[in-house]
Simulated scan of single mutants.
Amino acid sequence: MSSSATAGTLSQADRIGVVVLVGVGLVLAAITVVGAVIRLIETLGGGRIEVLAEFAGTPAEAPIGVDGAPVTVALDTAILSVSDLPLASVISLVIQQVILVAAVLIVAAMLGLLVLGILRGIVFSARHTVYVGTASIAAFFGIVLYPFFGNMAANGAFAALSDGTFENVILTVQPLTFIVAAFVAALATTVFSVGARLQRETEGLV
């Protein structure tokens, strides 16, 4: 006779660990959402818009020589402040933040439901597999699409500042996406680690 779920009694340490991990994740999610809202307000508020731009070792002058003398360095990243950012770039920035918020909220919701099940002593089940899979997919698309639209916005900033004479097409993954992915991976690892122990305990009683 088979069962679709593995149940058991969580120890106090397990419960504390799961709750702390979820608490940290919720704080990160809240910070991310607030930051995205602020970014949207800045983007749609008019005036100059700051855009993160990636460079491929582009030469630039930095005042780091003797008495502040300029020295040529290889520029990797910079913040471009543009007052006439093309509409396509503005839309890209908006989409970028919407994707970020959506991915974070989906991940937080799925993992929240997962934790509720864990606290009831159920770790391995078809429903929990769906939760973990949905969270992973949301995180994956966030990782892929967030830098993609950021790159589109940066290309528009380059075009606006150089009148289309400077091309610098580079695609990188932003650190914030790694935070989301790390949270998903860490919680999933914790869930299945606890689940494996509960399963061993259950099998030992059979």
Rank of each mutant, 00 (worst) to 15 (best):
M1R: 01
T9F: 10
A13D: 14
V19I: 14
G25L: 09
V27D: 08
A29C: 09
A30D: 05
A30P: 04
I38C: 01
I41T: 10
L44D: 06
G46T: 10
G47R: 07
I49V: 15
A53N: 06
P59L: 11
P63D: 09
V66K: 08
D67C: 02
G68Y: 10
D76I: 08
T77P: 03
A78Y: 12
I79C: 04
S81D: 13
D84C: 07
P86V: 13
A88W: 14
S92N: 06
V94A: 13
I95G: 06
Q97V: 06
V98W: 01
V101K: 00
V101Y: 01
V101P: 03
V101R: 00
A102L: 15
A103L: 09
L105Q: 04
I106S: 04
L111I: 08
G112Y: 13
G117P: 03
G117I: 00
V123L: 11
R127F: 11
H128G: 15
Y131D: 10
Y131G: 03
A138W: 03
Y146V: 11
L161Q: 10
G164N: 08
F166S: 06
N168F: 05
V169Y: 14
I170T: 12
Q174A: 15
Q174N: 13
P175F: 08
L176K: 02
F183W: 14
F183A: 09
A186F: 12
A186W: 08
